[in-house]
Design a protein around this nucleic acid. Structure first.
Lengths: 223, 223
DNA sequence: CTGCGAAGGTTGCAGCAGCATTACGGAGCT
DNA sequence: AGCTCCGTAATGCTGCTGCAACCTTCGCAG
């Protein structure tokens, strides 16, 4: 892990660098705001520690500059200016955390880790089918990122088929996905939905077709 | 934005709920650790506020449980136990931030926003939609940098839709974003908000429209 | 190859669930 | 007191959806 330290007090900076170093953290140090942008361009730091009072200005002013330049590196403000309103100011400017001096190195480390902790992304991949993208969790369907709106029952049919793309879905399984126990159907309502859905998919140029397997069920295929 | 508050002091909890509510944050409250896991399963909170001393145990013990159950929701510890070493302990346990009581609501808000701004968070700070810019953390809406002020509930609806621009938002999702589990609605209150919001957006020339998908939900589109 | 029965496809139609809009009054804030 | 916000309910409307009638396709056996 490598971080950038902006701090004007040489002694503190050296002590901090040494302490962090023992924890396996490499620290680059500068006391000039002007250097900071260039340094972040040269190296993608894991975090930035920022003093507010620096020889060439208020440290907080760096934050919007960095953000505008596209950096989303976590920033922790380290400062003696530790009044509640000043803390609010710091966080509102875009700092990820704010730590008043003096502080325990242990606390800084803990906050660093808290800031860096990146939980495993549970990003739902979404199902690609033909030219469609289907988000089965939120029930939306897009074609070339244009939303395609389908009536509820047709939507449920489509999602169910798409989840098992290229595999047969038994008719009772489909019915169960679209109707609950209370809603009984005594007709070919499901067939009707399939038919209407096919038409809509065709009109929209979805790039998929729904095949029937006689006596068994249905199957969604890409063209 | 909707958060879960674990706090045993009823008065503080109510006051905090009310204060956050005014800032457009919907709060669910419980004082039992045992409820927390179940509640997080029912609703994906944007953040969790956690007291350490709770009737059924130390609040911190909840954190590893939540993390093991796959929740990556940011957790802010709110507690009177505010010694440096206790703070370290809290952060090491996996809290994203640690705030000693008493605190200013302003600071809590700032820290909440800071935590939600982190890259791991799903919250997008600024959303462009039509001629609007929406700051989902501060709940500000501007049109050509002129502020547009909307009633709280309509604002929540708009932000929720804007966060998923061009994608359907299921009706229950929308309800959950606007009402907590104590506020039940037995009428078409949500529909009424949508209707009034539409009118306001039209009058303001926001450049977006809200579409309904029958039986499924709503969808915000740019014109 | 041809005929037959069953499964599936298509489509019009009527009923109704779901939505849009608006007025009204209570509650809360300044 | 005056204002806005917000939940409720009444009203009207749209179009989804189940149904049924009719048509097409498929599989199979003679």
């Amino acid at each position: 892990m490598r971080i950038l330290l902006l701090e004007d007090e040489k002694e503190l900076a050296n002590a901090l660098s040494a302490a962090l170093n023992k924890h396996g953290i490499v620290t680059d140090h500068t006391m000039h705001l002007a250097d900071a942008i260039e340094l972040t361009r040269q190296h993608p730091y894991d975090a930035i520690l920022l003093d507010r009072r620096l020889p060439d200005g208020e440290g907080l002013t760096l934050i919007p500059k960095l953000r505008r330049s596209g950096t989303d590196t976590p920033i922790i403000v380290l400062t003696a200016r530790n009044e509640p309103l000043e803390r609010v100011e710091g966080l509102e400017t875009g700092a990820d955390d704010y730590l008043g001096k003096p502080f325990l190195v242990e606390e800084l480390l803990a906050r660093l880790r808290a800031v860096l902790r990146r939980p495993s992304s549970l990003a739902e991949p979404g199902i690609a089918a033909g030219r469609m993208m289907i988000d089965s969790l939120h029930l939306n369907v897009t074609i070339d990122s244009m939303p395609l709106d389908l009536p509820r029952r047709e939507l449920l049919v489509l999602v169910t088929l798409a989840k098992r793309k290229d595999k047969t879905v038994l008719r009772p399984t489909l019915e169960a996905a679209v109707y609950n126990y209370e809603e009984e159907i005594q007709s070919n309502a499901l067939d009707a939905h399939i038919s209407r859905l096919r038409k809509r998919l065709l009109d929209a140029g979805a790039g998929v077709t729904i095949h029937n397997i006689r006596g068994v069920g249905y199957l969604l295929k890409e063209e």
